[in-house]
Amino acid sequence: MKVIMLVLLGMLAGCTPDKSAPTPSSSASTETPADPVAVAQPVSGHIAPKLSEIPEGPFGDSVRRGAAIFFDTPGKAANFVGNSQSCSNCHMGGGRVADSGPMWAAWGMYPAYRKKNNHVNTMEERLQGCFTFSQNAPASASGAAPPKGDPVLVDLQAYIFWLAKDVPIGKEMPGRGFPTPKKPATGYSVERGKVVFDAQCALCHGAEGQGLRTSADHQQFPPLWGPESYNWGAGMHRVNTAAGFIKANMPLGKADLSDQEAWDVAAYINSKPRPKDPRQVGSLEDNDQKNHDEDCLYGDSHEGKTLGVGVSRAL
């Protein structure tokens, strides 16, 4: 039996590595401190205000609603969410944590040009992107992200603006985004990633990546693949992005995987089925050429199947 190691699979077919990928954040937080007390120190230049400090009045009410949407998006913005993902699943601590896509570091950087859609995006349009891809809005009740001006987007922006209090406009803040760990010289391996997943991730996210739902309205641990996860167009489907998120944040509260383990398990998770890329209008091959010039497994052949076909919720 021939065992095919998917080392550097991203370079073999389909997606090609994104050569324009941003360089890793230079913040010191990517180092693993030996002293646990060192971990307990703030790791960024900004400490966002606490939820208990949200002011009274109409603006504060909007911030509070925005926070509630952020922590429970399928429950509080149900019309626009087509899976079981909340904003806070990827933006830890309600979007306040450095190296975990903190919202305060994003606020002052928009409007910004995005290669993804080849035009300048406002924060509002950027948030629509999260709904479309990470929260798979095409499978939602409305079938799309909230329209511009929708109260969901207004409240989310009020919350994000409030988190960014005193952060300079236009300044790249330390801790922004997810720092990409150094890609191992020998690449990554889906097979090794499965070993990491089974040992470190399955405890919460389930052996089949299904997450854990404890009641109709409570998702305790988010699904990592399958119809309830992010789709093939979400940033997290890129191996480098997922590796960065995992390295900085997982396992929750511990975050002690090696760079190699983070890349391997990111590849394993992103070799699994998930909802189709909403940008695919023609063939999968065409969409791969057009939209997946990046470090991902979209369009690759894996275990006899082409990745990216897409899985849907049972109706």
Partner: peptide
């Protein structure tokens, strides 16, 4: 909510 500025997750994130 935890105390994420000190990398402390909310208890409820694991304990429900």
């Amino acid at each position: 909510q935890g105390d994420w500025d000190r990398r402390i997750p909310a208890c409820s994130q694991c304990h429900g």
